[in-house]
Design a protein around this nucleic acid. Structure first.
Length: 527
RNA sequence: GGAGCGUUGGUCAAGGGGUUAAGACACCUCCCUUUCACGGAGGAAUCACGGGUUCGAUUCCCGUACGCUCUACCA
């Protein structure tokens, strides 16, 4: 007996509270987006934390589509969400796309399941029918400055609380539109423990009588989330902080319907804020400040409104995920670069922040640069090759292409930078920055390069060291400093003041191209 | 308005009664590099405010301010 107690105590001190009592249950989390548009940074981060937590604990990650509002249905949005997840490498264990034992995973297809629970609440006096029209409600809102459908006002409205049983039945039989609302208890303390914020409590009177079942027979989020989390055996529920104020409704629903002991542990994630000023980061901020907010390109089919994605901006999914993980979480060691498997291993809820984080695109770019730099080019060369082809540059030699990518990769922040940084390896530069050469150009240098061409024509070993040696020796003979020659030569070969070492470039583009580019620029300088 | 949640440099953040208050991004200077970048060395810059508790508070408590979120038959 004594020993048993000791073991329990020990156990309690080691195991986080949010896993206590869950030891026998497999961890199951869900991401529950509504398919109304592009997938936002914050959405992906919610997915990520769900995923990391589940995988860290060997659990399941479920995606459930919350499409209970048919007026907001957007064609293609669901497919887009799954494509984003696939791009990020966050594969669901169960979803409408991947199937699973709790199908269907679209709430619109689960419509029939919800009403029985709403009815049960009505039966138990925990919810009621309301017949008020939207117009009547609007009128009330105008009449009272802070109108809420609550203990204060529900007596003055048209609902089964006020109507007699017969009147209610008559209205129902006549086909009068109705909704079911939860009856929020008066002045009750509702509390729960949030994994991130600890004990949170609300007074029940503060919330209004939320609609549970809409006039079209669909549940609202409030009912659907509770019913489905129960049916799908969700153990931990992550969502944005904006949901905190409606949590008491959900806690109450759990208490009424399934019992608090089955309620998942809640975690309300801090918000991702706009870089300047305050407030939630929105697509609008991205447009304004020139950075993507969505994971991938998204065009709203209704408005044709286009939003650029991180993927198309040239981000590696590894970098995108890494950057998102660090927005609100860190492992305490100062390490910032993590692969997905590392994140899974290190992730823990007790290191998730409470406060929101302003999104910093500069830092996001740094993550991508690090990933480009530290990843073998083979990993992304196919994608970069496509970028070259889009720019009208055909790549024929893959081995040489990858050599070039490797040579320039630390100069690239996004994948698209490779085109600018390496196009001149495969195509003669169209624009030569003559203005950068001209001020210090003279006949002496002209003669030098003329002679350099002749020497290059005869060079036997066309490679870096040999070419450098030749230029230096010839510079000495002409009483010129190599430094005065390097920049002109670079511009002749590259077109501008960028790129890797000049002799590396000459070595790769070959004798013919090197000579012809020098000749061409010399002609331009003559003109 | 109400309620809830939050607040360490410009940004992300570590720390958590005694520290010169880590580190990263960005910025500035220098070194390396005969371009740019990478790399290296430095610099500037912070505990929102006011009360407690304490020998001592950035850290604990209480207020205040500020910010955000919610306040739909949207999620």
């Amino acid at each position: 007996m004594y020993l048993f107690g000791l073991v329990l105590q020990l156990g309690a001190s080691i195991i986080p509270y949010y896993l206590c009592g869950m030891m026998d249950k497999k961890v199951r989390v869900r991401f529950a987006p509504s398919p109304t548009g592009g997938l936002h940074l914050g959405g992906v981060r919610t997915v990520l934390f769900n995923y990391l937590f589940a995988k860290h604990h060997g659990g399941d990650f479920i995606v459930r589509i919350e499409d209970t509002d048919q007026t907001r249905f957007v064609a293609g949005a669901e497919a887009y969400i799954f494509e984003c997840l696939a791009w990020c490498g966050l594969t669901p264990d169960e979803s409408p796309l991947h199937g699973g034992p709790h199908a269907p995973y679209r709430q619109s297809e689960r419509k029939a399941m919800y009403s029985q629970y709403a009815m049960q609440l009505v039966q138990n006096g925990q919810a009621y029918y309301a017949f008020d029209t939207p117009e009547e409600l609007d009128a009330k809102r105008k009449e009272f400055p802070n109108f809420q459908y609550n203990y204060q006002h529900r007596t003055g409205l048209r609902n089964s609380l006020m109507l007699s049983e017969a009147e209610t039945q008559l209205l129902l039989q006549n086909g009068t539109p109705w909704v079911i609302r939860i009856k929020m208890p008066d002045n009750e303390d509702i509390r729960f423990t949030d994994m991130i914020r600890g004990d949170v409590h609300f007074n029940s009177s503060q919330s209004d009588d939320k609609v549970l079942l809409k006039a079209d027979g669909m549940p609202t989020y409030h009912l659907a989330v509770v019913v489905d989390d129960y049916l799908m055996q969700i153990t931990h529920a992550f969502r944005g902080e904006e949901w905190l104020p409606s949590a008491p409704v959900h806690v109450l629903l759990w208490q009424y319907l399934f019992g608090l002991q089955h309620m998942p542990q809640w975690a309300h994630l801090p918000l991702i804020l706009k870089p300047d000023g305050n407030g939630k980061l929105s697509k609008r901020d991205g447009d304004r400040l020139g950075f993507p907010v969505f994971a991938m390109n998204w065009t709203d089919p209704r408005t044709n409104d286009f939003a650029q994605g991180f993927r198309e901006r040239g981000f590696l999914p590894e970098a995108f995920v890494n950057m998102l993980a660090m927005l609100g979480w860190n492992d305490g060691t100062g390490q910032e670069i993590f692969s997905l498997p590392e994140l899974i291993e290190r992730f823990s809820m007790d290191r998730v922040h409470k406060g929101g984080a302003k999104f910093d695109f500069e830092k996001a770019k740094w993550f991508n640069q690090e990933w480009i730099k530290n990843t073998p080019v083979q990993h992304y060369s196919a994608q970069v090759k496509l970028l070259f082809e889009q720019a009208g540059i055909l790549i024929t030699n893959d081995t040489q292409f990858e050599t070039v990518l490797h040579l320039v990769k630390e100069r690239c922040i996004v994948l698209n930078d490779f085109v600018q940084q390496a196009a001149f390896f495969f195509a003669t530069p169209q624009n030569i920055d003559i203005a950068a050469i001209k001020p210090k150009w003279d006949e002496k240098k002209n003669q030098f390069f003329l002679e350099l061409i002749r020497a290059f024509e005869l060079t036997t070993l066309w490679q870096h060291d040999e070419l450098e040696k030749e230029l230096k020796e010839m510079a000495a003979a002409h009483q010129l400093k190599p430094g005065e020659l390097m920049l002109p030569l670079r511009i002749m070969l590259v077109g501008g003041k960028f790129g890797p070492g000049v002799f590396d470039i000459a070595g790769i583009i070959g004798r013919e191209a090197t000579i012809s580019r020098i000749t061409h620029t010399l002609q331009l300088l003559q003109a």
